[in-house]
Computed example of a mutant assay.
Amino acid sequence: MAEILVLVDHVDGNPRKPTLELLTLARRLGEPSAVFLGAGGDTTIETLGRYGAQKVYVVDAPSVDEYLVTPAVDALTQIAASAEPAAILLPSSLDGKETAARVALRLGSGLITDAVDVTARDGGPVTEQSVFAATYQVTAHVTQGVPVITVKPNATAPEPAPATPAVEKVDVTFGPVSAAAKVVDRTPRTRSDRPELTEADIVVSGGRGVNGDFSVVERVADALGAAVGASRAAVDAGWYPHSHQVGQTGTQVSPQLYLAAGISGAIQHRAGMQTSKTIVAVNKDEDAPIFELADYGVVGDLFQVLPQLVDEIDRRRV
């Protein structure tokens, strides 16, 4: 069976949800092999094996954590040269897409980014993508070299397929480009109990209609175990951090449930959330464009509607 390389995105050795999704998708295409950079342990290997990794390539050179994105490029390029995989899958994060582009260039391969689905057909992997601000769904496949594909988070649900992976430690030669820029200092990111915006199954976003008060949006998000998003108008006004912006120029999300509160639905915002599985809109303007996209809509004042929603969620949990 053809080998499929999956780049592991992890935090302190713990694989993140998009990696588990990629391993699930990789099983459709062939035999998944995980490429892990950094110091991992038995727990890391066990987690990757639980989601179908048949093999784990471990690159644990001291310089891995000193450099920026290029160590992953060197590792994937050199492993692909010997493993001859049928495809390489990476998460559609900023680092993931930069890594994928460089790997494809070095391998002389075709590149597909921001896939929302991957299936196996004769001739290799076929992807589905949302294009032109998520107005159209298209299919694509690579016609040259090893397909290098980045996949959006929440493209599929992680499905366990227990395996006992073989572990191969790999010595990677890092080129001069990798050593050109080093990380000299790190500041740990403030951790939150809420899930990551790109990985969350549920996202609750606020827009201009919150009038600077995101507390009611956060209450709903916490009641649902959701991430908090914001429209461009909200972040430009300084009401919420730019890292939470959902839209064409912000973060693109595709959760199971997207709740838009006080968001009109401009095309810039729609491009970042239109592929959500279920969309619920709350807006006092019945002509707001967001209602054209929503599966369910409530015409009303979000400061009256959302507290009632929180109360109902709490009542049903009792």
Rank of each mutant, 00 (worst) to 15 (best):
V305R: 03
A226Q: 10
V282T: 00
V167F: 03
A120M: 10
F291R: 00
R106H: 02
I267C: 01
A200E: 05
V167H: 02
R191Q: 14
R27T: 05
P62L: 06
K169H: 15
Q137W: 14
E66P: 06
L90C: 01
P307R: 03
D193A: 14
V204I: 10
A181L: 15
P62Y: 08
V235C: 14
P176I: 06
D314E: 15
Q308H: 12
A180C: 05
D193L: 14
T251W: 03
V8A: 02
V59K: 10
E66K: 15
T150C: 08
T24S: 03
G123H: 01
V131W: 11
R270H: 09
G265I: 04
D65H: 14
V151M: 11
H141N: 12
T156W: 02
I263W: 12
V8H: 09
L90G: 04
S130R: 13
D185S: 13
V298N: 05
D301Y: 11
A100I: 02
D285Y: 02
E31M: 12
L37M: 13
V305L: 13
P71H: 10
K55T: 00
V318G: 11
V56C: 02
P255L: 08
L259H: 08
Q248C: 07
R315S: 12
D9S: 07
L302N: 01
A221Y: 07
G212N: 07
P195M: 10
V58E: 03
T70N: 14
D65F: 09
P289G: 00
I88S: 01
E31A: 05
N14S: 12
S215C: 07
Q256D: 13
P255V: 11
E196V: 12
T173V: 11
V220Q: 04
V210P: 05
A200Q: 07
I279A: 00
S192L: 06
T43L: 08
L306K: 13
V103E: 00
G40A: 02
E159P: 11
D122R: 14
A230M: 11
G250V: 04
I112M: 06
I313S: 07
T251N: 15
G206N: 05
G229E: 04
L259D: 00
V58F: 14
V318M: 15
T187C: 02
G41R: 08
T43C: 04
L7D: 00
K152R: 15
V56M: 07
Q304L: 13
A87Q: 05
E21P: 10
V35C: 02
A179M: 10
A179H: 14
V126G: 09
A179Y: 12
T249P: 13
S205G: 03
V177K: 15
G229T: 04
Y240P: 00
Q256N: 06
A81S: 14
A157L: 15
I313E: 11
K17H: 09
P85H: 08
D311L: 13
A39F: 10
E31G: 03
G229H: 02
I263L: 01
A266F: 11
I279M: 08
V280T: 00
G40V: 05
Y240E: 11
T139F: 02
D295T: 10
V298W: 12
V35N: 08
